[in-house]
Simulated scan of single mutants.
Amino acid sequence: MEQVYPRIVEFLEEELGKDTSGHSLDHAIRVYKNAKAILKSEGGNERVVLISALVHDVIDSKLFEDSREQQAKLLIFLQTLGCSQVELKEIFYIIENISYKGGTGEPVHTLEAKIVQDADRLDAIGAIGVGRTFMYGGSRGTKMYDENILPMEFEDETAYRQHKGTVINHFYEKLFKLKDLMNTETAKKIANQRHEFMVTFVEEFLNEWKGQA
């Protein structure tokens, strides 16, 4: 992994270097570090987990207009790293199935996918999660808060993707739910503390919004 890491980072800088939505290279590296920490306690195929953690956003449809083109580009790149057919199958299974999808997605079934999903979700909560949520909202022109727009539950991924609510609603619609959706015991422990930080933050935000001292 040490040999291919610099090449993956260079590839990601090219693909995600201009991102302003909270999905840039620094996010990928944090997910990689989260996955590495979870691996120590949970086990799993280290190479598959760490490569998947780094490249998980390269084919994300909310970041790229042509996700099929991104898939082809990523496949060619991973082949240059010497990934076997088995590894390629496992990596693409992970990165195609770990996203939240409005809470309507099927649970992932491999330990490696569970670890990468947890690692990605840990970076969506806590202090970093708060920052990334506002960053993403700002990049999409989303309001911070509107008391007339209520949080929603979504029937499917399409409704989730098309919905344009507020940044604060996103905490209720997704982020507050992630603590209970962690797969591994390691991630669950980390998530508890980060969840409490978000709850405190949103309470303070709403108090300040209402002009309460």
Rank of each mutant, 00 (worst) to 15 (best):
E15A: 06
Y93K: 01
V58I: 04
P107H: 05
V108E: 09
K62W: 09
M135I: 14
I115S: 12
A37K: 15
V55W: 02
T133G: 03
I38N: 14
V86Q: 05
V108G: 11
Q85L: 15
V130R: 04
I38R: 15
E15Q: 15
N97A: 10
L75W: 03
K114H: 08
D123A: 03
F134L: 11
V49N: 03
Q79W: 00
S61D: 11
K101S: 14
L122Y: 00
E112L: 05
Y100G: 11
N45T: 01
V108Q: 07
A72L: 11
K89R: 15
V108D: 03
T104Y: 04
I51G: 01
L63D: 02
I29H: 00
L74R: 01
Y136K: 15
E106W: 13
K89M: 06
S21G: 14
I38Q: 12
A35H: 00
A28M: 11
A53S: 14
F92L: 05
G17K: 02
Q85C: 09
G131C: 09
V48Q: 05
E69G: 15
S21N: 05
G82W: 05
S24N: 14
Q117R: 15
I115M: 10
N97K: 15
D26M: 06
F92G: 02
I98T: 13
R68T: 11
I115T: 10
D26E: 15
V108A: 12
L75Y: 02
G102R: 10
M135D: 08
D66W: 09
I38L: 12
Y136Q: 15
V58A: 03
L39K: 07
L16K: 15
Q71R: 15
K101R: 12
Q85F: 14
H27C: 03
I115Y: 10
N45C: 08
S67F: 10
Y100A: 13
F77I: 00
T80G: 13
D26H: 04
Q79M: 09
S61Y: 12
A53F: 01
P107V: 04
A53I: 06
D118P: 01
V31T: 04
G137Q: 08
K62Q: 11
T20L: 14
E46R: 07
Y136C: 09
D60W: 10
S99E: 13
Y100C: 08
E87N: 06
G43L: 07
F77W: 07
D57W: 05
R132N: 01
